[in-house]
C-alpha cells in the first residue's frame, strides 16, 4: 500500500476495530518454552515463572492482562531482552535471547524491537524529533537520512509541525505518539507496549490504540501489549490472562 500522509487519514473513527485482517500463519514468531524466572531477595528466591510456555505468530497483536504481581512486566522485560530468564527457551524470530550476552541483546534490541512505555520516557532536554532520532544514532545513516526518516514517522503519528517541541510542551497523548514514533522509526518487526494508555484519558488512549492497530494491520508489526485496560485489550487479536506466572485464559477477537 502507499504510505499515508498522516495516520489520522487512515484510521477509522470508531475506537473499536470493526474487522480484523486475514488469519495469521501458524509458525510462532515468539516462542517461550518452559521458561523459568525467579527474583532473589537475600537468600530467598521468589519464583515468577516456573515453566511458562507461549507462542505468538508473526504479525499478531497480543494483549496480556492480569492482576498486579502476576508477572506481566517481568514477561515484557524478558521479551525485550532487558532481563534474562533463569532457564528454558526464549526465541524471537531466529534469535535465542536466553543464550545472548548483554552486548548481543543490546544489538538485537536496536534492530528487532521497539518499545512503548506507560510514561513515554522521553528525554526532556530533547525535542520531539531528537527523541525520535535516538534509535537511529545506532544505525549507519547520514544526518539527512535520519532527518528524513524522523519527519516521515512524525508525520505518520500525526505530529508533523511539532518536531521542535519538547516533551514538556506537549500533552500526554502527543508525548505517547512521540514514544510510538521513536519505537517504530528504525522499522523493527516487534513492538512491545507496557501499559501504553495507562497515563492517558480515554480519547487520547483510543487514538494511541488506533495507531497500534494500524501499525499491526497495515505495517505488519507484531505487537505485545501489557495492559490493565479491558478496552485497550479489545484492540488486540488475542488477549491472554496471566495470573501467578501462568496463562489461565485466552480470548480471541471475533
Amino acid at each position: 500500500m502507499s504510505q499515508p500522509d498522516t495516520i489520522d487519514t487512515l484510521l477509522p473513527a470508531s475506537p473499536v476495530p470493526e474487522s480484523l485482517p486475514e488469519p495469521l500463519p501458524d509458525a510462532p514468531y515468539i516462542a517461550l518454552e518452559n521458561l523459568r524466572k525467579a527474583y532473589r531477595i537475600g537468600q530467598q528466591a521468589i519464583p515468577i515463572f516456573a515453566g511458562l510456555d507461549l507462542a505468538i505468530a508473526e504479525g499478531d497483536f497480543v494483549a496480556i492482562m492480569g492482576p498486579s504481581g502476576s508477572g506481566k512486566s517481568t514477561l515484557l522485560n524478558l521479551l525485550a531482552g532487558i532481563d534474562r530468564p533463569d532457564g528454558g527457551v526464549l526465541r524471537i524470530g531466529n534469535s535465542r535471547l536466553d543464550q545472548m550476552g548483554e552486548g548481543a541483546r543490546a544489538a538485537w534490541r536496536a534492530h528487532h524491537m521497539g518499545i512503548v512505555f506507560q510514561f513515554y520516557n522521553l528525554l526532556p532536554m530533547l525535542s520531539a524529533a531528537e527523541n525520535v532520532e535516538l534509535p537511529l544514532l545506532l544505525k549507519p545513516l547520514s544526518r539527512r537520512e535520519r532527518r528524513a526518516r524522523v519527519e516521515r514517522v512524525l508525520d505518520l503519528v500525526g505530529l508533523a509541525g511539532r518536531e521542535n517541541h519538547r516533551p514538556g510542551m506537549m500533552s500526554g497523548g502527543q508525548q505517547q505518539r512521540v514514544g510510538i514514533a521513536r519505537a517504530i522509526v528504525s522499522d523493527p518487526p516487534l513492538l512491545l507496549c507496557d501499559e501504553p494508555t495507562g497515563d492517558l484519558d480515554r480519547a487520547s488512549a483510543d487514538a494511541v490504540l488506533d495507531m497500534l492497530r494500524f501499525l499491526n494491520s497495515e505495517m505488519k508489526k507484531t505487537i505485545v501489549m501489557v495492559t490493565h485496560d479491558p478496552q485497550a485489550a479489545l484492540y488486540a487479536r488475542r488477549t491472554l490472562i496471566l495470573d501467578k506466572g501462568r496463562f489461565i485464559e485466552e480470548a480471541r477477537a471475533a
Binding site: I82, A106, A107, W108, R109, L134, L138
Partner: peptide, 16 residues
C-alpha cells in the same frame, strides 16, 4: 538512571 535505562532499552550498547 532511568533515562540511561531507556537508552539501553533502545539498544544503546554499554560502551556507548
Amino acid at each position: 538512571r532511568f533515562e540511561i535505562g531507556v537508552l539501553k532499552t533502545l539498544g544503546f550498547p554499554q560502551r556507548t
